[in-house]
Amino acid sequence: MSAESPLQLARAIGEAVLGVPGVYSLGTGRYAEAATYGPGEKFVGVVVGDDAIEVHVVAAYPSGTPIPELASRVRERATRLARSKQVNVVVDDLMVTADEAV
C-alpha cells in the first residue's frame, strides 16, 4: 500500500498502529502537538517528516508486553507503510485498562 500525501501516509500508519495489541490510542505529544498537517486538516499522533516518521502511542496497561517490545511491534507495522523512512516510536503515556482502574 502506498499513500499519496504525508497526511494520507500519517492516517494510514495511524490506523495500522491502532491495530497492534497493547496500543490504547495514538498520543498527542508532550510540549508540541504531534501531528501531520495538510490543507485544512491534520492527523494527530503521527508526524511524517522528510527523513523520518514519529509515531506517538498511548500503551494499554497492563498489557503483559514490555514497552520496548510493544514499540518494536508498532515500528514493524509502521515500517511496512513508511516508504523507507526511519520510524521512531514515542510512548507518551500508559492507560490503565483492566481491573486496576479503580
Partner: peptide
C-alpha cells in the same frame, strides 16, 4: 530512550 528509535516520555 528505551532503545534504537524508541522513546518514552518523562511523564510516563
Amino acid at each position: 530512550r528505551l532503545g534504537e528509535g524508541t522513546w518514552a516520555t518523562r511523564r510516563l
